[in-house]
Nucleic acid binder design. Sequence first.
DNA 1: CCGAATTCATTTGTATGCAAATAATTGTCC
DNA 2: GGACAATTATTTGCATACAAATGAATTCGG
Lengths: 148, 148
Amino acid sequence: MATQPRQKPDGTSSDYALDDQIGFILRKVSQRHTTIFAAAFPDLTAPQWATLAKLYEGGPSSQNQLGRLVALDAATIKGVVDRLGARGLTVTTPDPADARRVVVALTEAGRKEAERGFPIAAAVTAETLGALSAEERVQLVQLLKALE
Amino acid sequence: MATQPRQKPDGTSSDYALDDQIGFILRKVSQRHTTIFAAAFPDLTAPQWATLAKLYEGGPSSQNQLGRLVALDAATIKGVVDRLGARGLTVTTPDPADARRVVVALTEAGRKEAERGFPIAAAVTAETLGALSAEERVQLVQLLKALE
DNA sequence: CCGAATTCATTTGTATGCAAATAATTGTCC
DNA sequence: GGACAATTATTTGCATACAAATGAATTCGG
């Protein structure tokens, strides 16, 4: 059962269909994930959570280095750290060994928030992948990681 | 070769690793796609291209309906349409049949830009999926579509 | 037919994301 | 040791995203 190429207004045909493009699909799946995440974490965005989780996993880090760990550029990680700091979840101190750097660390409240969040974040992942079997989930993650 | 559960600072262990979470991976893959897209389309963002492509595929549409087709909410599609209109790629007219609606359509320049873009957009998809075999690409799209 | 619910478009506010420019500091290399 | 390159953090500007509120128009149910 072969699929027919789309018929364009000018009569020519093409195989391009927006709904089948990886970029468009990625955006829609990301949107659904964002919705699920927001319902589970009313007071935290996904990048904010990623920052907390990475600080918990890896300990204090310079701001730019932290940004690289969570895939946020220098301008974006600054905003995220500022907002986490304003809420008392992180603290920022100058690096004694390098005057250019500021070191970002979790506060006690930040550690508690991270520990509270881990099971919730795991549930967000599970719900996002809810339509897939265990094997399919592994497959999907494997395929996506090849595209990172 | 079993993987060890991550060791947390407090000594307890957990299976949660940010780098393995679907949301985090999706964001990173989307970022890479955005980079590839921007290099191929210096003057168009992916949502702007999606809007052009959908208008070309489906013809004129009310603004909100168009937003649903390209997965942009009412506030976002408005900005996209405004910017496309400012560049002469789309035109906006009131709907005679429904005074609430505005109809968005491609201009001749918009049609030409869409036709010019199709092969480029196909190349962006191909480059994004470059690390995967043909079967893997089909698999990935299939798995992602199950999550939409 | 009429009041209520819905839809449509707009606006405001907040939060990413990214490019580009800048200033301060550190590292490198001859 | 000193010019020069690279790194770090910041700032500005633009473009998504999304929640929430608003006002106008249409649809629906009784």
